[in-house]
Design a protein around this nucleic acid. Structure first.
Length: 593
DNA sequence: CTAAACGATTTA
DNA sequence: TAAATCGTTTAG
């Protein structure tokens, strides 16, 4: 049934597989080592078979209740024993009962062996009385606990302890070490992270010692065992300290680092398992996974000597470790850590330099691209600044024009038709003659009703008149409209009677004629507020360029950070790239260039 | 992303 | 049938 259950079951044979490389046990009719695929176990001989070797898919397996391999079936047939159990037929589930039976079957697996299904696996389960479930390995200390601590947050939530029953989780102290979901991670401080790292370090060095010394050689299996070990400590200490989980003193805080580390670790494993959970059906049909090398926690005892005291792990230190620590002093811990760095780092640097780093090259290319774009943006910016000044020049010059009286105004009037257009803002029909005026006012009206601000004032060096930037104490924001377009904070100046419109006249839309509109500004409907619009046009473009520059700057910073962080001390110590096939070169390197 | 909440399922 | 607790959703 549970795929993950098989992972930790120390069944002789398949279960103790993987990771051992050449010595990996062989299974199935093909006699190949366990590969990470669906496998089915014979309910008689317990041998494992690859699904694809015997043409059984996971889906098919779901319908199977008892499965026997060819050999067992043949033998049973040949012996022709009258014994009722010896007819080894594959038994299927009836469709409607499938779900239910799975459960019943599962349940019985855990506890009993029915005569018709010789259950070797459950017998191998070390006679554990505790029922196993998805979230309980049934083996660990917490699984065996039957009493709630009544003090943890989960207990306090329970009805029986007067809680609101909102969280609805098992007592902290009964959360399975192996399978419990990660429920809450408390107070992750930097110091705990360091401690977590140190735990890993210690573990590594421990391994070394074990390998080099009289100790029986043992496979180093990630850090699960260290967790278990520390978890024991946590429990001991946690109970003593009345569950001061957040206590973060001395070397090994009793609880937090363990659980926190576990939180990180377990999560991924669990997520994957979860997927499989859904597919799984019976205990006998297991999806094999890679992380089955979790060594049993009980094996950890060899770290301590008989007296229960341990030697400090510091380099050539012979002192006894402090309680709840693996070192006699902080110093020893640091020394050990330093040693490890000296030992590992040169190698890793060398290794790193041996293979070209694609990411690094990408980064360089990106930087080049960014720089090109930045240059373009800057050019555009200077161009826009030039236009800005040009426009101001034009406006200034336009002001000097003398007002030409009357004629044209009347002319405009005479052109008047009953043509109507609709305001883009209020959609009222308006006379084209006053359209610009109306729309301008309409825009101002609506625009004033909204606000467009940011928490910070604009700080762009060398840019004049971009954002309005008026502070609004109510919302504590700075207005981010274009200054020229902000109807809220800047009123159009009153136009003197004698002011000329002064809009540069054009023919064919774009060609400047060099002349200026000389109608009185107040009366010119054709070029209403032309300066404002022209300024806005320029300013908007300037803002765009600034945004672009900002974005590019951000990109550059990101790329640079990525590049500096790449192959840093921590990265080199923690990660490693393995080139599995040195013959095949990186496909990208051919493609890209 | 995590923690809290809570419906749903399982177990007693 | 209630309690236990799991897995998923929601909120922050």
């Amino acid at each position: 049934m549970d795929s993950e259950m098989s992972d930790i079951d120390p069944v002789p044979g398949p279960e103790t597989s993987s990771m051992e490389g050449e010595n990996a046990p062989l299974y199935c009719i093909c006699r190949k080592p366990d590969i990470n695929c669906f496998m089915i176990g014979c309910d008689n001989c317990s041998e494992w078979f690859h699904g694809h070797c015997i043409n059984i898919t996971e889906k098919m397996a779901k319908a199977i209740r008892e499965w026997y391999c060819m050999r067992c079936r043949d033998v049973a047939l040949c012996s022709l024993s009258p014994d009722k159990n010896s007819s080894l037929e594959i038994k299927y589930r009836s469709k409607k009962n499938r779900e239910k039976e799975a459960e019943i079957d599962r349940g019985s697996d855990r506890q009993y062996s029915t005569p018709s299904t010789p259950d070797y696996k459950s017998e191998r389960r070390r006679g554990s009385k505790v029922k196993r479930s998805v979230r309980m390995c049934g083996e660990c200390e917490p699984c065996r606990r039957t009493e709630d601590c009544a003090q943890c947050d989960f207990c306090k939530d329970m009805k029986k302890f007067g809680g609101p029953n909102k969280i609805r989780q098992k007592c902290r102290f009964r959360q399975c070490e192996v399978r419990a979901r990660v429920l809450k991670v408390v107070d992750l401080t930097t110091s705990t992270i360091h401690k977590m790292l140190r735990v890993k370090d210690e573990e590594l060095s421990l391994q070394e010692r074990r390998d080099n010394s009289y100790h029986r050689r043992r496979r180093y299996s990630e850090d699960y065992d260290s967790e278990a070990d520390l978890y024991q400590q946590y429990k001991a200490a946690g109970l003593k300290n009345n569950m001061a989980w957040n206590s973060d003193e001395d070397d090994e805080p009793p609880f937090s680092p363990v659980m926190r580390k576990k939180a990180v670790k377990v999560k991924h494993v669990k997520r994957r398992e979860k997927k499989f959970d859904k597919k799984k059906e019976s205990r006998r049909h297991k999806q094999k996974q890679k992380h089955k090398d979790r060594t049993r926690y009980s094996e950890r005892s060899d770290l301590r000597d008989n007296t229960g005291q341990r030697q400090c792990l510091g380099p050539s230190c012979v002192e006894a470790a402090r309680p709840n620590s693996k070192y006699c002093s902080e110093d020893c811990g640091m020394k050990l850590a330093a040693n490890r760095i000296y030992e590992i780092l040169p190698q890793r640097i060398q290794q790193w330099q041996q293979s070209p780093c694609i990411a690094e090259e990408h980064g360089k290319k990106q930087l080049e691209r960014i720089r090109r774009e930045q240059q373009n943006a800057r050019l555009r910016l200077t161009e826009m600044e030039r236009r800005f000044h040009e426009l101001e020049g034009i406006i200034a010059k336009a002001k000097q024009q003398a007002v030409q009286q009357d004629e044209e105004v009347n002319e405009g009037d005479s052109e008047d038709t009953d043509l109507q257009i609709f305001c883009v803002s209020c959609s009222h029909p308006i006379n084209p003659k006053v359209a610009l005026r109306h729309m301008e006012r309409c825009y101002a009206k609506y625009e004033s009703q909204t606000s467009f601000g940011s928490m910070y004032p604009t700080r762009i060096e060398g840019a004049t008149r971009l954002f309005c930037d008026v502070y609004n104490p109510q919302s504590k924001t700075y207005c981010k409209r274009l200054q020229v377009l902000c109807p809220e904070h800047s009123r159009d100046p009153k136009i003197p009677v004698d002011e000329v419109c002064g809009c540069p006249l054009v023919k064919n839309v774009f060609e400047l004629t060099g002349d200026y509109c000389r109608v009185s500004k107040r009366k010119c409907n054709k070029h209403y507020n032309w300066e404002k619009l022209r300024r806005a046009e320029v300013d908007l473009e300037r803002v765009r360029v600034w945004y672009k520059l900002d974005e590019l700057f951000e990109q550059e910073r990101n790329v640079r950070t990525a590049m500096t962080n790449r192959a840093g001390l921590l990265a080199l110590m923690l990660h490693q790239t393995i080139q599995h096939d040195p013959v095949t070169t990186d496909l990208r390197s051919n493609k890209d260039r």
